[in-house]
């Protein structure tokens, strides 16, 4: 999952730095993630993992770092399994 997120981030993130150089915990907004790019990232994740982000997770926190994105996506996948 980490790899998919990094691939998407490279493709749609529009970051001024190389995604490979970002630590999992690095602040994506400080790295230059715009709100437009964060939406593109969400759309990419919805497509890649066949999920939909519930409204409660559509906030800055969920996309603050690669680790946070991983956690958010895992959370949705788990919730789906449980359902």
């Amino acid at each position: 999952m980490n790899e998919t997120i990094r691939e998407l981030l490279t493709r749609v993130g529009g970051l001024p730095v190389a995604v490979t150089e970002l630590e999992d915990g690095a602040d994506l907004y400080a790295a230059g993630l715009s709100s437009f790019a964060s939406v593109q990232l969400m759309l990419g994740l919805e497509e890649a993992f066949d999920i939909e982000f519930p409204d409660s997770l559509l906030n800055r926190k969920s996309f603050a770092s690669i680790a946070a994105v991983e956690q958010t996506v895992s959370h949705i996948l788990k919730a789906r399994e449980a359902a």
Partner: peptide
């Protein structure tokens, strides 16, 4: 423009 971007993923109540 900003709202239209958000509407690509946001689910309205």
């Amino acid at each position: 423009g900003n709202t239209s971007t958000m509407l690509l993923v946001q689910k309205p109540d």
